[in-house]
């Protein structure tokens, strides 16, 4: 009896501060976002008008919003796919193959992840510049000027240029993550399958991939959240959503509406949609990727 009281006190003391901070600085503000999405408010005056779901109705017909939605989805898909493929490829190479200087590569690959997004934006502006940029000058050194592009100027390419920076930033992080989970796979599995004559590719698909599957699933959620987040920070610092809205993403459009178009409530409605969208997408992906968990 005494033990259970003590236990209760212990649990209470340990969880309350965390719960308080979480409530105060994350849950309440999130509820505020939801609440303000039902109002029309300029942001400065005290003149808040309740408009119900009107902001969401407007969203539905706002082509600029639809475009930022498309851009965001495109980024999530492209960045996730490319990053996962590259990260798995390189983590397999570094764990399974006896590579000279493996540690060196691991250290280098992780560097972009520790840089501030402000710095990354600066770096990629220097890379993508049409005349004095590293990329176009590099191409001209090898005499393949035909590949030179207006990386941030061509509306068909700009969003992919942004995704290039995001992939660059993310590959090392996920690679290290997959490496650590691959390192836990017992070597005996591979030895056994080697004796059965399985090649690298077979081994990869029958051992490595199934055993790190759960890890990959977890990272998919990270991908959704971090792509929405980082694409905004990067776009703000690099293109401001231009040219003509072709790199506008969810959050940059939300900021634009809330601040420069003095439609704070409308901005929050966009926030709500982003929140629900990322939640739903994660849930769906979680469902689709469900496999029987293989234990080792």
């Amino acid at each position: 009896m005494k033990k259970t009281t003590e236990k209760r006190i212990f649990i209470f003391v340990c969880t309350t501060p965390a719960l308080l901070l979480l409530t105060l600085f994350m849950i309440v503000p999130t509820i505020e976002v939801f609440r303000m999405s039902l109002y029309k408010w300029g942001g400065f005056s005290n003149n808040q008008v309740f408009v119900g779901l009107n902001n969401f109705k407007i969203l539905w017909n706002d082509m600029n919003f639809i475009r930022s939605l498309q851009n965001s989805i495109l980024l999530i898909v492209v960045v996730t796919l490319i990053t996962i493929v590259l990260a798995i490829l390189f983590s397999t190479l570094l764990t399974r193959e006896n590579v000279k200087g493996g540690n060196f590569f691991r250290v280098i690959f992780y560097i972009p992840n520790i840089l501030s997004i402000v710095v990354i934006a600066g770096i990629f502006s220097a890379i993508y510049d049409p005349t004095s940029g590293l990329l176009n000058n590099f191409l001209s050194v090898f005499n393949i000027e035909s590949l030179q592009k207006m990386w941030l100027g061509d509306q068909k390419i700009a969003i992919y240029s942004i995704s290039g920076a995001l992939v660059w930033q993310a590959v090392g992080y996920y690679m290290v993550m997959y490496m650590s989970s691959m390192a836990n796979i017992p070597e005996s599995f591979y030895e056994a399958s080697s004796l059965e004559g399985a090649g690298r590719i077979t081994q990869f698909f029958s051992i490595t991939l199934p055993l790190i599957w759960n890890n990959i699933r977890t990272t998919l959620t990270f991908f959704i959240v971090s792509t929405i987040n980082l694409s905004f920070l990067l776009v703000q610092a690099m293109t401001g959503g231009g040219p003509d809205g072709s790199t506008e993403v969810f959050l940059s459009y939300m900021y634009k509406q809330a601040y420069t178009n003095s439609s704070y409530g409308y901005g929050m409605a966009i926030g709500v949609v982003i929140f629900l969208f990322s939640f739903a997408l994660s849930a769906i992906i979680n469902q689709i990727t469900k496999r029987e968990v293989l234990e080792y």
């Binding site: 300029g42 902001n55 509306q155 040219p243 003509d244 509406q257 178009n261």
Partner: peptide, 24 residues
């Protein structure tokens, strides 16, 4: 008044990037 999602500056000026690049 603020009109949600509507900006004359974006439509009249910002679109010129698309006119120049041929996207509009």
């Amino acid at each position: 008044d603020a009109v949600e999602g509507v900006s004359i500056a974006d439509t009249l000026f910002r679109s010129i990037d698309s006119i120049v690049s041929g996207d509009k």
